[in-house]
Design a protein around this nucleic acid. Structure first.
Lengths: 223, 223
DNA sequence: AGTTCCATGGGTAAATATACCTAGGGCAGA
DNA sequence: TCTGCCCTAGGTATATTTACCCATGGAACT
C-alpha cells in the first residue's frame, strides 16, 4: 500500500566486465536499485541513452572511444537529469576537478568499499554530491575548505563509538538506556546519534536503522 | 558489541512430529529463538527436563502418557521458571480454564497463523499471557470481562488502517507526514500508531519496525 | 435495539529525539 | 608545535513520540 516507489535505475559504463558485474551484483542486493544496463565504451553509452535513460550513470573515468570526462560533458548536456557517479582508479586532483567541473555528481575510487558505493548512490539519489574518502586525504586542503560550510560533508566513515551506538539504536534503545549501557552521558549518545543521522543523510532513527540493517552496517542478532 | 543477548530456548512437546517440525522450522527463521529439543509424550518431557531446562515449553494439550493439563501442573511445580504455551485443537472452554489454572502462560490454537505463534512467544517472553484469537469469540463474555481492564489484551490482529500506518511507519515517516499522505489528522495517526505499539507489545517505533519487518508484517520494497 | 469494533480526532502531559550551539582533553600525524 | 579528529558533555530550543483521557458516527453482528 505504501510503497509503490519506482526503482532507482542505474546504467553501468566501464570497459572492464568484471567491475561491471561486481557492481551489478552488489546493487542487486538492494531491491530499490536496478541495473538497467551495461555498456563498455563511450560510443555504446551514447547509443544506449538514445533508447533508455537511467536515473544514475556509474561511469569509469578511463573508458575507450570517449574519455570519462568527455562522456560526462556530453551526457550532462544531452540529458541534464541523469546523475553521474565517476568511478576511477586515479587519485589525481586534475581528474577530479575536470570530472566535477564537467558535471559529475560524485567521485568514487575503485579501492573504496562496497559500503562506500552504496553511500555514494544514496547521497546522489538525494541530490547531494559525493567524494571518495581516499581523496579526502590528498585533497584535504582545497576540498575541505570548499566543503567546510557544507554540513553534510561526504567523506565520512563511522568511528568505533558510532558503530557501537548504531548497534544499540538498531535494538530500539533510548538514549538514556544506551548511556547507562556504555557508562556515558545521554548527551554523548545524542551526539553520536546525531552524527550517524548526518553521515548517513537520514532524518530519523527508523530510517537510520533501515538503511544500516539493509546495507550490512550492523549484524542483526536479536529479535 | 551490543548483542550478547542469549537466545530464548524452546522445547517442543507434541506427539505429532509434523507439527513439531513445522514449529521448529517457523522458529528457526528467528535468530533470537532456539528450539533446543523435541519430545513426543509426557514421560519423555519429564525425562528431558531432568537434563536440560528451556525458557519456554510449547506443549500439546492432548499428549500420550500424560495429558497436557497434567503436564502443565507437574512442570510448573518442578520448574516454576519455565513458561508454558499450550498448543491445542480444542476450542473448548473447559480445556482452556484447566490449562490456565494449572499454570499455562498462553493458549494457542493449531488453526492459528504463524504470525500468531510468534506473537504468542513474544508476549510470553515479556512476561505476559496469550490467548488465541479463535477463542476470543467463543470466550468473549467471560474472557473479555476478565481482561477488560488489562490494557494489553492478547487477542488482537491488525486492522486495515493499522496495516497502512504500519507500512508508513516502516518507511520512517512522521505522524504529520503520514497524516498528509492518508488525508487524516495527525491525531488519528497517533491513535493507530499507539494501537500498533500496544498490539505488538513494543515500546517505540524502532522496535515496532524491526519486529514487523522480521516477521513479515510488512513487505519491504523501498530503500 | 443493543453491543462491539473500527475509524475518526480533540485535550493534556511527559518523555524522547533532533538541531543547533559551545568546549576541553587525548591522540596522531605534518 | 600545530592541526585535525574523536570522545566527552553541557546549554537551549523545537519537533516528535508516547501515554493517558475523552467522544462521535458507521458498520456488522445478535
Amino acid at each position: 500500500m505504501a510503497r509503490v516507489k519506482p526503482q532507482y535505475r542505474i546504467l553501468l559504463a566501464d570497459d572492464h566486465a568484471l567491475i561491471r558485474h561486481g557492481i551489478r551484483n552488489l546493487i542487486s542486493n538492494n531491491p530499490a536499485l536496478e541495473v538497467i544496463g551495461e555498456v563498455g565504451d563511450g560510443e555504446e553509452l551514447l547509443e544506449y541513452l538514445k533508447v533508455k535513460v537511467p536515473d544514475l550513470l556509474i561511469l569509469d573515468i578511463s573508458m575507450p572511444k570517449l574519455t570519462g570526462i568527455e562522456a560526462v560533458s556530453k551526457v550532462k548536456k544531452l540529458y541534464p537529469d541523469i546523475k553521474i557517479l565517476m568511478l576511477t582508479m586515479h587519485k589525481n586532483k586534475q581528474y577530479f576537478y575536470h570530472a566535477m567541473s564537467a558535471g559529475a555528481d560524485g567521485y568514487l575510487m575503485k579501492e573504496d568499499s562496497d559500503e562506500e558505493l552504496l553511500l555514494a548512490i544514496k547521497r546522489i539519489q538525494n541530490g547531494k554530491s559525493y567524494l571518495s574518502p581516499y581523496l579526502s586525504q590528498d585533497f584535504a586542503d582545497d576540498v575541505i575548505s570548499a566543503y567546510r560550510n557544507n554540513r553534510s560533508s561526504p567523506f565520512e566513515t563511522l568511528t568505533k563509538r558510532e558503530r557501537e551506538v548504531l548497534n544499540l539504536v538498531v535494538d530500539g534503545h533510548t538514549s538514556k538506556v544506551m548511556a547507562e549501557m556504555l557508562h556515558l552521558s545521554p548527551r554523548t549518545i545524542d551526539h553520536h546519534r546525531a552524527n550517524l543521522l548526518r553521515k548517513f543523510d537520514m532524518k530519523n532513527s527508523v530510517d537510520l536503522v533501515n538503511f544500516a540493517v539493509r546495507n550490512g552496517f550492523v549484524t542483526q542478532t536479536e529479535q
